[in-house]
Structures are given as structure tokens and as C-alpha cells.
Design a protein around this nucleic acid. Structure first.
Length: 945
RNA sequence: GCCCGAGUGGCGGAAUGGCAGACGCGGAGGACUCAAAAUCCUUUGUUGGCAACAACGUGUGGGUUCGAGUCCCACCUCGGGCACCA
């Protein structure tokens, strides 16, 4: 690689020179507080510096300080946001750009357990290492705003937000039915005054303390409940639905997860389901991410319908109430509470066997759609509300207790699952719609209402048949599903057999973890249940202990029970405090919060990191994140990160932000206005004959084949990292080329949103570019500035064309094409021998966001004493973007044959004549007479012969 | 099965419906060097030709258009997400 040696000119841009320049400027920036962004008020406030500038809040997804350190795949997004931030500063913006560390959580704890050191120590060391690596990249972070979730001054406010959530309830009637979180004290006041009835109608004062506490606790947005949760013995903790992969394992560690009833903290995110979906429309996110969120929340509009039985009504959820006339049986989930009472003695053995078998099955096995349908008849019947038909009640495991009401009406002619079930058990399949002729034709059968000829169920718009009763509901002849639904919903309401409703897949968020390395809950328990600690008791410090390892279990030991490490600390768990009615002994909550808690609001703390009165000052939040006019939700101006957080962090964070909005703590409705998903850096990984990964750096390529220690190995592409043994450290790149080259390389290999393979051998291209730039400015023998005379018109035109293009590309995050245009400009200067004096400054300013160190050094050589950080980015002169002449391609019959140079102001006729007079055109025409000549001014001429 | 993306040289990738392959890597040739590395210069889509040049060329097949990598229809392949959600 590039090493300065005796033959190398002394002042060439070598890796040692790059290193010298970079380290010097990194110190200079620190010493001069170059990247500190003023707030409008408060400790970081400087109103005069804020005035007259637009603001820009640029954010990277919260990084996790891993013990392994960074590899070159990590900073792709960081470099992108840095280039953008630097560009925006030069474009006159006040840019808030910082980075903190999401340092609580499982990996830090596991790393600590592995190394036998306390997680506080390993975490601090990891953060220090990561800060060093990031600083070496030249990222222009405002260091004053950097925080760590593990810092008590930070998690004090995480706990404070938890208490805000705990001390709130969701008033579904507020804001004209949109709903809004309100302080729990307002609920108590309404219950007390009688404005809201108590659940059983007694006056509030007649309820015992225990009853009152239960009523209130049932309304809280953070609540303790006994419910089916995901128990992961391999991790020794419960985990959220979002952390379970679709094959029923933990996304961290890939351990089996079991559904178990346990007492755990939940967050009532379902209260926000509608707003979380609806407000996606206000955001500048990709459709893919929006679709993933919509999918996860899973809103479906339908109806609840009651089927009468002698054991009481069975309520079903359906999205197709219009098909009620085709409902020939009802299916309950095996766990449905009515199953026992509905089962007749003759069937009780079979039903109990089936329930046992279903319970033993993991969710993942039950959800295999390709499995043959199974089920058992309970022996009872239910009454179809629209036609009074007595329909059999079955239980089957294709109906899930966790969705809707755990019971369905089966319409075998219109639902494929019900169709298969009916075929399996020889149940009636009456047709209620006449499918169109094309439907039959596509399946190669004759049109018929005899469903025994149908290969599958029909769903969609079609004329209803056999769908009328004597009680005012008649769908026969109706042709659209929408109208069928509407009429049926109206009828159900009128006859009190059901109503339209909306159902969600989203479940409440399981919020407690039985681990050590997380935020303690600011909660104690008395004889009635959980009690919030006052704000003055915050932060509740994570207790010091050497026994931080969780109790872990055999990964398959489903019936083990979680044991929180904090539970072992008797000295900590029992605490005497005065919560207003004298000193009493309470028991602390021994769970910790999930890792997502700290990342739910970190962007707010960047804004006001030292505030000890509030999580963020209202004016400061309004300035950086407030809505920009009607219909704008507010939020971070640019948020860059990977797609892997589509439903975890981004959903939880939006939820917390909306609670804070409802309670008046922030002015923005949404935390992240514009989300940009950057690609991943992939790298070649190599497997040997045993299918084990080998060290990728030691693999040799010969004739297109790959060898490791002379044994053939197979190449594949994967995410760069330790597990594939293909990580490349940025330190290696700094040594060989310097940070500016690494930055340029990462930005040049493709658009920001594309994943791209890492190729170490390609990096040299950007190094050569910087060497050429340097050489155009600096004499390699003497180190003296060597600029040429002023530029000729052609060069000036090229310069201004480049300025216009680079500006536009930078704005659009198209850094790869911006770099290409800068290379073209520089190559043109190289051909002319030296950099013209009047091109030098604009060129330096244009490369500055991309490779800031070498740009600062050249800027200094050009005679400027200060950093170029806030120097205006060049603006193209419109006059120089126009030219006197233009070269136009000429097509004959759509094939390009020649090009002509004409005056920019030439009329179409002049252009046409010039094209027809061109030798190559005449040749191509071969004597034929042109039938038509199309002139696209400034673009092309097409001659049709 | 459903919903998103994406298919362009040896490789990463450029192209408001208007000269396909910018820019970089790699390859070939040359300069410098005792030699190599580094650096610099020239060249480089494929095929044919000494050359001028010609033909072909953006996953496949059709279509719209004076003109299609770009727009429309159908299909194929790859990547991602969801999936017995009633």
C-alpha cells in the first residue's frame, strides 16, 4: 500500500501526511468548539447566533457501543449525516448534530458476564473506544450534546417519562374521538365527582381503597397485568412480541420463546394504534417502512356479531359480515372460555384431548398454514342471527385466542380456511354469491352455484344470492361487498346483534425484563399494588452488585421461572420511605426496563442535555423539532438508520413521543419527520469444506477461485461482522490512506440507500483523487502553493456547472454523483496543468463536506485563518451555466448517426438545415428523402426517412 | 400465497422519454526505475475490421412513441417484509 519512502516526493499527499493533517484538524475543531450549535435559550443558548438562520436537526440512529469496536460497515450512515450536516452548515443552517450511546441492555450485560467485569466498567470502556474511533473519522458532532443511556442524569428522565406514562390514562373521547392521554388525577376527579361512572355504578366514595386502586390501575398507560407473555428461558427474561422472530425464537440469541401467563409490566400502546397508523401519512418515510408499520399494527375494519347459544352469546369478529348468510358453523379457539360449558358430555373426552394437544403445540406449529385442518365438534349449536339457522360449534386450532374475540363465524364458500375445514369435516358449503364467469373459466369449470364443483372459496365483489331474511335484510342482487357490508352492519345494529368495529393485531408492549443492566422502575409496592415514587426520588439508581448475572436456564426449560438479579438484593428491595402518610416500608419493583426505553426519547435529550428541570426545555424543543406549519407534524429533519428498526424502535419511540405530546411536554406530534434508510456494507465471506467461516483477509484469489491456506473455499456475501470473519477495521484504513479517503470511498460506492459490497482494493481510487487534488494545489517537492493564472471561460463554465450539480446532489444525499462531478472537475484542472487561482477556493469548499480535513488544510494554505465550516458553499453563476453553442446529436430513423454544433439561439429551421447538411447524415440517408424532421431544441434532431 | 423493492460492462455504479455505461476499481499498453512497488499518461461494452466504420447491446416477450434503461402489459429471477390475523 501507499507508504512514503525515499523515492516519494516529500510533500506528496501520503497516508502519513493525511494522518498529520487529520489529527491536527481534529484537535483544532475541538479547541475552537467549531461544531457547537447554539440553542435559542438555556444553558446552551445563544439567541444572537440563532437569529436569522434556519435550523436543521440531523440524527443518526442511536448506536450501541459494542465491545468489538467499529468496523468499516458501521459508519456508512454516520459519514452520510456528517457530510450532509457539514453541507447544511455551509448553506447557512444552524445544524444540531450529535451522537450518544444506547448502552444499557443484553449485549453489554452478556459481554460483562463473559469478561467477568462489571457492565458499568465494560460499557464505559466500550464508549471510550467508540468515541475515539468516531472522532478519528472527523465527524462534526456537538460533543456537549452527547449522552449515554446509562448515565443516571439521563436515565433519571427515562424514569420520569415512565412515571408520566404510569400516571396517565387514555381518554378515548378526547379530541373529538381521536383520543388523548390525560393525567390520571383527572380520571380520579371525574370518578369522584360522578362525571364518570365507576365500573359497577356505585359511587366512587363507596368503593374500598383496594377497589379504587384497581379501577385506577386498570386505566393507566403503564400497568401490571397477568397475561400470556413471551418467556425466554435461554435469556432468563420475558421479551416483547416485537422481539420474537416469526419462527418463535428470540431475535437476540435465537433461543426458544414460550407463551406463559406471568405478571408483568405492560404499556398500553394499543390505545394509540389508530394514531400510529394515521399519522404515518404525515411523515416523509419510505413506503416500505410505512407498510411494515401498518402491517404490524394490523388494523382491520369489520364487525362484532353475536351468535346465541344456550351457554350465552358467542361474539365473533368478522371483516365480512355481508357473508353471514353463508355462515354454516362457528369455530372457537381451543382456549376459548365458553368451550367447557358448550361441550356436551358425549364430546367432552374428544374436546379435552384436543385442547391438551393444542396447548402442547407451540404457536409456530399452530400457524403453519399448509397444515391440514383439524378440529372437534363440541356437540352444541349456535343461532345464526340473520336467518336463525342452528349452526354447529366446533373448536379448531386455526382460530387463535389472541386475535379478535377468539371465535369466528365460518363462511366456507367465501373463506379459504373455512372452505378447507368444511371439506375436511363434510360440513355444508352453501353459495351466497354468484362468482363471475371469468372466475369459473380461470379454474376450468362450468359456472355453478353447486360448491362441490368449486376448487376453492370465492371472495370478492359478486352478486349476492340466497342472502335474504324475512326481517328486513335482503342482499340478493347487491353486487358490491362494500354495500353488502354496510347493509348488514346497519341491520345488526338495529336488531342488537352486533356492530361495526376495528380490530388490531398490535398487542400492548411488554415492558419489564428480568435482567440487571437496565433502568430500574421508579415503583414500589404496598399491600394494594404498585405506587409511583415522586419525581424528587429520581433517579432510582441501579444498585451496585457483583452478582449481576441473571439466572439462566436450559433454553428449552419452558416451565422455569424468571428471577430478576435485583430480587436477590435484600438491602435494596425493602425500603422505608414517606410517600405522604408517614414513613412505611415498601418493596421495590425488581424488574428493569427493556433496552428500547432509553432509545425512545434520546433525540430530545440531545437538544437540552444539561437541563435538570425538564427532560427538554419547551422553547428548545419547539425550536429544533416544532411543526413547520399546518399539517406538518414536527420532528427530526433527517433521521438516518438501518431498516432493521422498522417495527421495534420506531414504533415504541413514536408511541412515547405521542404520550409526551398529549401531556404537553413536546410540541411535535412525531419524533422523526424524515426517515432515510441507509444500506448495509456487505463483505465477502468464505466457507471451507466443513462449512465454517475462515478469516476473509487471509483468503487468496487465483484465476477467479478462492483459497485459504491452499484449500479451496467458497465465497458468499454477507453483512460485515465478527460472525462471518470478514470485518475490516477503520484503523487499518486510517493507517493505509487516512480518514478522508475512507469517507470518500464509502460515499462514492453507491447511493446512500443501497447496500454495497466492501472492496478494500477499490479504496485506492479515492486516495488517488485526493493526491491529484493536492498536487493541483501544492508543489510535491517544495510544499509551496502552486496555483495557475485565472481560469479561461471553458474552465469557469465547467466550474459553475459543477457547483450547480454538486449543490443539488448534496441536498438529495446523492454523494456518489457529487464526488464523480468533483473528480471530473479536478481531472480537467489536472489536464490544464495547475489549478487556476479563481477555481481553487470554490473547489476546496465543495470537497469540504466530504473530506473536511484536507479541505481545511488547503483552505489554510489559501490564506484563511479560520475554519471553513461556516463559509458559504459556492453558488453557481447562472450566466456561466449557459453557453453560446450547443452540441446536438442527430438521429436518422431513431439511430444516432452524427452530432452537430449550433448556436444556442438557433431556430428549429437553422438546426434542421445544419443536420441535413451533415456528411454522416447524408451518408446515412443514402439518398432517401426525409419524410419528417423532429427538432427537440437543445436536445436532439431525429430525421425520419 | 400476499405486500414492497431491484435486475445496466469483469466489479461497484451513472443516465429531467433524447449520444447507454459518467466516476471509481480491475484489465491492456506506455513513462519513471537496475528492478519492483507507488505515482503519472494512453486505452478499455461485445463482435468483426489495419482503419474509417458496421452490427449487436440495459432480465425475457409484447406494446406506446419520431425516439424507451426510463412509460404501459405479461412473464422470469433475486432481495426484503408479512403470512391460518377471520
Amino acid at each position: 500500500m501507499a507508504r512514503a519512502d525515499s523515492d516519494t516526493p516529500p510533500f506528496r499527499y501520503s497516508s502519513t501526511l493525511a494522518q498529520d493533517i487529520e489529527l491536527r484538524w481534529q484537535d483544532w475543531w475541538d479547541q475552537h468548539h467549531t461544531f457547537e450549535a447554539p440553542n435559542p435559550s438555556g444553558p446552551l443558548g445563544d439567541p444572537a447566533a440563532v437569529a436569522g438562520r434556519e435550523k436543521m436537526f440531523v440524527l443518526d440512529m442511536f448506536p450501541y457501543p459494542s465491545g468489538a469496536g467499529l468496523h468499516v460497515g458501521h459508519p456508512l450512515g454516520f459519514i452520510g449525516t456528517d457530510v450532509y450536516s457539514r453541507f447544511k452548515r455551509m448553506a447557512g443552517y444552524n445544524v444540531c448534530y450529535s451522537m450518544g450511546f444506547d448502552a444499557f441492555g443484553l449485549p453489554a450485560e452478556q459481554y460483562a458476564v463473559q469478561t467477568g467485569q462489571h457492565p458499568a466498567i465494560t460499557t464505559a470502556a466500550n464508549i471510550a473506544n467508540m468515541r475515539r474511533q468516531l472522532r478519528r473519522l472527523g465527524l462534526s458532532h456537538d460533543q456537549r450534546r452527547s449522552i449515554s443511556t446509562t448515565d443516571p442524569e439521563y436515565y433519571r428522565w427515562t424514569q420520569w417519562i415512565f412515571l408520566q406514562v404510569f400516571n396517565s390514562w387514555y381518554d378515548t373521547a378526547a379530541d373529538n374521538g381521536a383520543g388523548r392521554a390525560r393525567p390520571i388525577t383527572e380520571l380520579v376527579a371525574a370518578l369522584d365527582s360522578g362525571e364518570r361512572p365507576t365500573p359497577d355504578g356505585r359511587p366512587w366514595s363507596a368503593l374500598s381503597t383496594a377497589e379504587q386502586r384497581t379501577v385506577v390501575d386498570d386505566h393507566r398507560l403503564a400497568y401490571v397485568s397477568e397475561a400470556p407473555v413471551n418467556w425466554c428461558p435461554g435469556l432468563g427474561t420475558v421479551v416483547a412480541n416485537e422481539e420474537v422472530t416469526n419462527d418463535g425464537r428470540s431475535d437476540r440469541g435465537n433461543f426458544p420463546v414460550f407463551k406463559r401467563n406471568m405478571r408483568q409490566w405492560m404499556m398500553r400502546i394499543t390505545a394509540y394504534a389508530d394514531r400510529l397508523i394515521d399519522d404515518l401519512d404525515l411523515l416523509d418515510w419510505t413506503d416500505a417502512i410505512k407498510a411494515m408499520q401498518r402491517n404490524w399494527i394490523g388494523r382491520s375494519e369489520g364487525a362484532r356479531v353475536r351468535f346465541a347459544t344456550n351457554a350465552g352469546d358467542i361474539e365473533v369478529f368478522t371483516t365480512r359480515a355481508d357473508t353471514l348468510f353463508g355462515a354454516t358453523f362457528v369455530v372457537l379457539a381451543p382456549e376459548h372460555p365458553l368451550v367447557t360449558t358448550l361441550t356436551v358430555p358425549a364430546q367432552s373426552g374428544a374436546v379435552a384431548d384436543y385442547q391438551r394437544a393444542a396447548a402442547a403445540k407451540k404457536d409456530i406449529d399452530r400457524q403453519d398454514a399448509t397444515r391440514e385442518k383439524t378440529g372437534v365438534f363440541t356437540g352444541s349449536y349456535a343461532t345464526n342471527p340473520v336467518n336463525g339457522a342452528q349452526v354447529p360449534v366446533w373448536i379448531a386450532d386455526y382460530v387463535l385466542m389472541g386475535y379478535g374475540t377468539g371465535a369466528i363465524m365460518a363462511v366456507p364458500c367465501g373463506d379459504q380456511r373455512d372452505f378447507e375445514f368444511a371439506r375436511q369435516f363434510a360440513l355444508d358449503i352453501p353459495a351466497i354469491q354468484q362468482p363471475p364467469a371469468s372466475w369459473f373459466a380461470d379454474r376450468g369449470i362450468e359456472p355453478s352455484l353447486d360448491t362441490s364443483t368449486w376448487p376453492e372459496a370465492f371472495s370478492g365483489d359478486a352478486t349476492y344470492v340466497q342472502s335474504a331474511n324475512d326481517d328486513g335484510l335482503d342482499l340478493d342482487g347487491v353486487t358490491s361487498v362494500a354495500e353488502g357490508k354496510q347493509r348488514t352492519h346497519d341491520w345488526l345494529v338495529t336488531h342488537d346483534r352486533g356492530h361495526g368495529t376495528v380490530n388490531f393485531k398490535l398487542r400492548d408492549w411488554l415492558f419489564s425484563r428480568q435482567r440487571y443492566w437496565g433502568e430500574p422502575f421508579p415503583i414500589v409496592y404496598d399491600e394494594f399494588g404498585p405506587v409511583a415514587l415522586p419525581d424528587t426520588a429520581l433517579p432510582v439508581l441501579l444498585p451496585e452488585t457483583e452478582s449481576f448475572s441473571p439466572r439462566t436456564f436450559d433454553a428449552d426449560d419452558e416451565f422455569s421461572n424468571p428471577e430478576s438479579p435485583l430480587d436477590r438484593l435484600d438491602w435494596w428491595t425493602d425500603v422505608e420511605i414517606d410517600l405522604g402518610d408517614g414513613p412505611r416500608t415498601y418493596h421495590r419493583d425488581t424488574n428493569v426496563m427493556p433496552q428500547w426505553a432509553g432509545s425512545c426519547w434520546y433525540e430530545l435529550r440531545y437538544l437540552d442535555p444539561t437541563n435538570d428541570q425538564a427532560l427538554v426545555d419547551k422553547d428548545v424543543e419547539q425550536y429544533w423539532m416544532g411543526p413547520k406549519g399546518d399539517g406538518h407534524p414536527g420532528g427530526v429533519d433527517l433521521y438516518v438508520g438501518g431498516v432493521e428498526h422498522a417495527v421495534l424502535h420506531l414504533l415504541y419511540s413514536r408511541f412515547w413521543h405521542k404520550v409526551l405530546f398529549d401531556l404537553g411536554h413536546v410540541s411535535s406530534k412525531e419524533p422523526y419527520y424524515r426517515l432515510f434508510n441507509q444500506g448495509m456494507i456487505l463483505a465477502a465471506a468464505f466457507k471451507d469444506s466443513r462449512e465454517l467461516y475462515v478469516d476473509a483477509t487471509a483468503v487468496q484469489e487465483r484465476d477467479g477461485k478462492f483459497f485459504y491456506q491452499d484449500q479451496p473455499v467458497r465465497r458468499e456475501w454477507g453483512k460485515m461482522g465478527k460472525s462471518l470473519k470478514n470485518a475490516v477495521s477503520p484503523d487499518e484504513m486510517y493507517d493505509a490512506y487516512g480518514a478522508d479517503t475512507l469517507r470518500l470511498y464509502e460515499m462514492s460506492t453507491g447511493p446512500m440507500d443501497a447496500s454495497r459490497p466492501w472492496e478494500t482494493r477499490d479504496v485506492v481510487g479515492m486516495y488517488r483523487f485526493l493526491q491529484r487534488v493536492w498536487r493541483n494545489f501544492v508543489d510535491e517537492e517544495t510544499g509551496e502553493l502552486r496555483l495557475g493564472a485565472t481560469a479561461d471561460t471553458d474552465t469557469l463554465r465547467l466550474l459553475h456547472r459543477t457547483i450547480a450539480d454538486v449543490r443539488a446532489d448534496m441536498d438529495e444525499l446523492h454523494f456518489n454523483t457529487a464526488i464523480a462531478k468533483l473528480i471530473e472537475l479536478n481531472n480537467a484542472l489536472t489536464k490544464r496543468g495547475a489549478c487556476p487561482s479563481d477555481v481553487a477556493e470554490p473547489l476546496v469548499l465543495m470537497i469540504a463536506p466530504l473530506c473536511p480535513h484536507v479541505a481545511e488544510e488547503l483552505w489554510r494554505k489559501l490564506g484563511h485563518a479560520d475554519s471553513l465550516t461556516h463559509t458559504p458553499f459556492p453558488v453557481a453563476d447562472p450566466a456561466l451555466l449557459l453557453s453560446d453553442t450547443v452540441e446536438m446529436p442527430v438521429q436518422v430513423n431513431g439511430k444516432f448517426r452524427s452530432r452537430i454544433v449550433v448556436s444556442t439561439s438557433a431556430s428549429d429551421d437553422v438546426v434542421r438545415a445544419a443536420a441535413l447538411a451533415d456528411d454522416k447524415v447524408i451518408n446515412a440517408l443514402g439518398g432517401a428523402t426525409p419524410k419528417k424532421v423532429i427538432v427537440v431544441p437543445g436536445r436532439t434532431v431525429n430525421i425520419v426517412a
